[in-house]
Amino acid sequence: MTSTFRIGGELAVRRLGFGAMRLPTEPAPARETGIAVARRAVELGITLIDTAHMYGWGANEELLAEALYPYPDDLLIATKVGIAPAPSIHEAESCGRPDFLREQVDDGLRRLRVERLDLLQLHRIDPKVPLADQLGTLRELQLAGKIGHLGLSEVTVTDLAEARQIIDVASVQNRYSMLDREHEAVLDACTEAGIAFLPWRPVHPAVLSATSEITAVAAELGATQAQISLAWLLDRSPVVLPIPGTTSISHLEENVAAADLKLSDDQRHRLNNLQPT
């Protein structure tokens, strides 16, 4: 199983990435912790970092720029647009209006301090706006040089097929893990098409208290249950690019080490046969 993947056939990244959503963006000392974790991720060889406009409404993008700019040549920071604050401070809603998407793309460029977003994903499809209008707007921005590759998030097989009639889909970011396989068919479609699949929440919370085959395989490999979850994802398909997140450097290092684990045929079979939660 290869350790790298070319997103859109062009953007070469190591398959185990990092999800920046949980990094603290508050004033010091919390912010210093977020910066330190982001920098350590790059030191450990991570070349794919996932963020979004929604994460702190731009604060997460700004934190990554503060921590990592000027960016290493091999680092890909993928961001997402298409979510707007709702009336309640704890809520958000999809917004695919062309003017709103253009504004968020421009904001992302400014916050990340770049001239092009190499991978830009639509965070959610807005059911109130025709898909052709949403993706057509992003395609226009791509042709204008503001976006390199386009992706989707939380989509069905039907959504993916429809989107591929409008744009070249380079990536899909859906919730998926060893104990949560709701989007198995989407992953299979991405595997067949060579589309990067970025599972968010790649380690299901139930894994940490599991006493089943997960614990047994972890003991056999001298690993943690969380590491087994990430190793299983990397083994599942060559297009899978897990993006586990953390606020701890020690946890980050543990996650990165999972990329070196190799499952035997027997271990793979036992984990594949687990019943999803």
Rank of each mutant, 00 (worst) to 15 (best):
F5W: 13
L261S: 11
I214R: 15
C190R: 03
N60A: 06
A86H: 13
S229E: 03
P205Q: 13
G96V: 07
A206P: 05
K146A: 11
N60L: 10
P29M: 02
A259Y: 12
L16P: 11
T158M: 11
W232Q: 01
L120Y: 10
E103H: 02
T25L: 00
K262R: 05
R181C: 06
Q121C: 09
R139D: 08
T215D: 03
H183Y: 08
I83F: 09
G245T: 02
E213Q: 08
G108P: 00
D73E: 01
A12K: 05
E93N: 02
L63C: 14
G96Q: 07
S248Q: 04
R139P: 13
T79R: 03
L16W: 12
A161K: 02
T137G: 07
I46D: 02
V105D: 00
L198K: 11
E66I: 14
N273M: 14
K146R: 13
D266Q: 08
S153D: 03
A92N: 10
L23K: 07
H53I: 13
D266A: 14
E162L: 09
T2C: 01
A41N: 14
A206M: 07
E10K: 05
E254G: 04
A223D: 15
L138H: 04
R6G: 10
E43R: 09
E182T: 08
T47F: 06
R31A: 06
A189M: 11
W232T: 01
G96T: 07
M178T: 06
G148W: 02
F197Q: 03
P244Y: 02
E61I: 06
P238S: 14
E91H: 10
R111P: 10
I214E: 14
P242D: 00
C95G: 03
I49M: 05
T4H: 15
Q173R: 09
G45L: 06
R102T: 08
R102G: 07
I167S: 08
E66R: 15
A144G: 12
V240M: 11
N273G: 14
F197K: 05
P238F: 10
K128A: 03
R116D: 14
A92R: 13
